[in-house]
């Protein structure tokens, strides 16, 4: 019950040059782990997440999800994008039932389930609204719910909170931790923000660039709920920063 990445390589062609986006990446992610991919821009963390999501293809090496190679996107692996990705022509409720309706379940059941999920994050009053009527934070919460409602085993998140102001970002981080504790999903979360990684993750995958590679995996044993102002938190934050810059 794991995601295994073995000797993964990925290059991008720009004009005449070939650039290594990822080189010799090996990583194992256990079920129910909360993992952050942390690194500066250009370290290939988003590329790695997209590869796990099946949105890109690697050049060599393999990615296995419970032993099966990942070749295309699947609703087993929910994906929350950095950009707002709600369907603008659908209401919040229709966005959330989108994945369920694809599977021909009963419409009533789907709506009931979607409503339960929306209520769980306090969005029950937004059901009839269209995405352009929502704030940035609400859009990302709906996007998370839209993935979760399909009961994926894994949730892949690509800097989903980076466009939000700091209060909203903190609120959504706390909500995400609660969702993770309650639903016991595997979460792989990309960020360039050390504070965010230390707050969220149990395993922080530190990445470097030129070419994109994994430096090391730091196991964050800080007990939850985590307090950003505690001495321990700041110590781990400093330590992670040092590892990243070394």
């Amino acid at each position: 019950m794991t995601i295994e990445i073995k000797n993964l390589n990925k290059t991008f062609k720009t004009h005449e040059k070939e650039v290594f986006a990822l080189r010799d990446v090996d990583l194992t992610i256990e079920t129910k782990d909360f993992v952050c991919l942390l690194g500066p821009s250009g370290c290939g963390k988003t590329t790695l997440l997209r590869l796990i999501g099946g949105l890109e293809e690697g050049d060599s090496g393999e990615i296995l999800d419970d032993g099966k190679p990942i070749v295309e996107p699947s609703n087993e692996r929910g994906f929350v994008f950095q950009q707002y990705s709600l369907f603008p022509w659908l209401t919040v409720l229709d966005n959330v039932t989108f994945g369920l309706d694809l599977k021909n379940g009963s419409k009533e059941e789907n709506i009931k389930r979607a409503k339960t999920y929306l209520r769980s994050v306090g969005l029950e009053n937004t059901e009839k609204l269209y995405p352009h009527e929502l704030s940035g934070g609400m859009k990302q919460r709906v996007a998370i719910i839209r993935s979760l409602v399909n009961k994926p085993k894994t949730l892949l998140m690509d800097e989903p909170f980076s466009a939000l102001d700091i209060q909203n970002r903190h609120k959504l981080q706390e909500q995400l931790v609660r969702i993770w504790q309650k639903t016991e999903k595997t979460i792989i979360f990309v960020t360039h923000d050390v504070d965010e990684a230390v707050f969220l993750a149990d395993h922080i995958v530190l990445m470097g660039k030129n070419p994109g590679h994994i430096k090391e995996v730091y196991n964050n044993k800080l007990p939850r709920p985590r307090n950003r102002n505690s001495k321990e938190f700041l110590a781990i934050q400093n330590h992670t920063m040092e590892l990243l810059e070394s």
């Binding site: 999501g53 949105l55 295309e72 996107p73 699947s74 609703n75 692996r77 929910g78 994906f79 994008f81 950009q83 990705s85 369907f87 022509w89 989108f98 994945g99 694809l102 599977k103 996007a143 839209r146 993935s147 399909n150 892949l156």
Partner: peptide, 23 residues
């Protein structure tokens, strides 16, 4: 990103066309 979002929610190629690209 809408096409990719659809795929991660389980759309087939045909559904990508009818449920995302067309609307």
């Amino acid at each position: 990103v809408l096409i990719e979002a659809g795929k991660t929610l389980g759309t087939s190629n045909l559904q990508t066309i009818t449920k995302i690209i067309f609307p």
